[in-house]
Amino acid sequence: MGATKLSGMQKQVLSLYRGFLRAARSKTTEDRRRIEMIVSTEFHKNSKEVDRKNFQYIEYLLRLGTKQLDQLKNPDMVSISSIKVVTSKT
């Protein structure tokens, strides 16, 4: 009741998010805090900015995220960052 059914893609995104938060647990407290901040900001930002019908782009982001998560799982990896290239529409 009230709980809206999630699409397969939404589930994938949430699963990826969970994966990131899980991977962050294995880092030191300080790194963890930072990783969680970055990941949370990134996911929330994309959830607002990306058109939910833009499946191709979401799939691309999912692939990108999965790759970054794999790298983050490496014990030597301490943080992640993302650079956004903004192209103006002119």
Partner: peptide, 14 residues
């Protein structure tokens, strides 16, 4: 939102 819910569940797990 659903992302926050994931965070809540993760915090509860811990």
């Amino acid at each position: 939102d659903s992302l926050d819910t994931v965070e809540i569940v993760m915090a509860l797990e811990e």
